[in-house]
Computed example of a mutant assay.
Amino acid sequence: MAKVGLQLYTVREEMEQDFRGTLEKVAALGYKGVEFHTFFGHGADEVKSILDELGLEALGTHTAYRQMLEHLDEEIAYNKQIGNKILIVPYLEEADRVWDEVFANLKELGKRTREQGVVLCYHNHEFELTEKVNNQTVFDAMYAAVPAEDLQVEMDTCWVHYGGYDPVEYIARYKGRLPIVHLKDMTRDADGKAITAELGVGEVDLKAIADAAIDAGVEWIVVEQDYCGGGKPLESIAASMEWIKKYAAEGGKLNV
């Protein structure tokens, strides 16, 4: 049964101001795991102790591409110490989007992480769906170029939707290679640009996506909201958890 986690980037300002207190609030809302994007200078032993006390799992860490290229062994050691065995490339700057080079680097990074008992994932935005390599989306070209044993999929389903593709179809396409799915809702501004939103208030077909993800055997469904309207991220993640609980009460096979 899939578990529900939170990408802590959603509450980044709260985490920076009160690391432990924010994690306490996240746990109290019912999130089973957390996905880090930074540790705000806290040591691995301290982070592990807090997670254990709160009953939270470290489900993954977003680690900058260049940081992985230059300091992979240190990142692996820290993350293994806190109980996390999934490292995720979170975003590629435009200057880094030389795709043949990226694919080769991901293959090498994946090999090195695998040899140390860690899984490498890649987290998409919309540009991997709108840019092409040899008549394939970058998304598909990447996973065709790098073997599944070296690179797994962390699919941000909102950005798949915003990129013009069906997240349900993409989930089915990558079944068996998909340990984590990001569940995110969105509205649009007057220019059609995405505005991330609490689950259930936007245009994304969240139920269909959650159903497909669970059918595909994902381990984690992760809530993420890049920017929270009104500047109250803790209220936003509470509202999203209410959607999750309603979905589970109506038959969704989630551990909540």
Rank of each mutant, 00 (worst) to 15 (best):
E108M: 04
N124Q: 12
L178A: 08
A145C: 01
L183Q: 02
N134L: 11
T187Q: 14
A104E: 14
F139Q: 13
D150I: 01
Q116T: 10
V146L: 05
E149S: 06
A141C: 01
V181A: 04
R112D: 09
F139A: 02
D150H: 10
R188V: 11
V160H: 13
A145Y: 00
D166I: 01
C158F: 07
D191A: 09
G110L: 01
R112Y: 08
L151D: 10
Q136R: 15
K184Q: 05
D140I: 00
E198H: 11
Y143M: 10
F127C: 08
V138M: 02
F103R: 10
M186G: 02
R173E: 15
V118R: 09
A194V: 11
R188W: 12
D140P: 00
E115K: 03
G200N: 09
M142R: 13
E198L: 04
T113V: 07
G163A: 00
A194H: 12
T113K: 08
V102R: 12
H161E: 03
D189V: 06
T137M: 00
A148S: 10
H182Y: 07
E169G: 05
G200F: 15
K193A: 07
L120W: 12
A197Q: 15
E101N: 11
H125D: 10
N134D: 15
E101T: 14
V153N: 11
E198W: 11
Q136K: 13
V160N: 07
V168R: 14
L109D: 06
L106A: 02
N124M: 05
L151E: 13
D185L: 02
D150W: 10
N135K: 13
Y170A: 02
D191C: 07
V168F: 13
E101C: 06
E149M: 04
T113W: 14
L120D: 12
V168K: 15
R173M: 13
T187P: 03
T130M: 01
K184I: 04
W99S: 07
A141N: 04
Y165Q: 12
E203Y: 11
W99K: 08
Y143W: 13
A197I: 11
V146Y: 04
A148P: 01
Y170K: 06
A197V: 11
M142W: 09
L120A: 07
H161P: 00
Y143V: 02
E101D: 14
P147R: 04
F103K: 11
W159V: 03
E126K: 06
V119E: 15
K184Y: 11
H161G: 06
G163M: 00
E198Y: 12
V146G: 00
E115V: 02
D191I: 07
H161R: 11
L183N: 01
Y143T: 08
N124Y: 10
D100I: 04
W159N: 09
I171K: 06
H182I: 02
R177L: 13
G163D: 01
C158W: 05
G200V: 07
D100F: 10
A190C: 14
G164P: 00
V102P: 09
G163P: 01
E154Q: 08
K193L: 09
G110I: 00
A190I: 12
D156Q: 14
D185N: 01
E131A: 08
K193I: 05
Y143E: 12
D166M: 04
T187R: 13
A148F: 10
H125T: 05
C158A: 07
A144G: 08
R188Q: 05
I195E: 15
G202R: 02
L120S: 08
V160L: 12
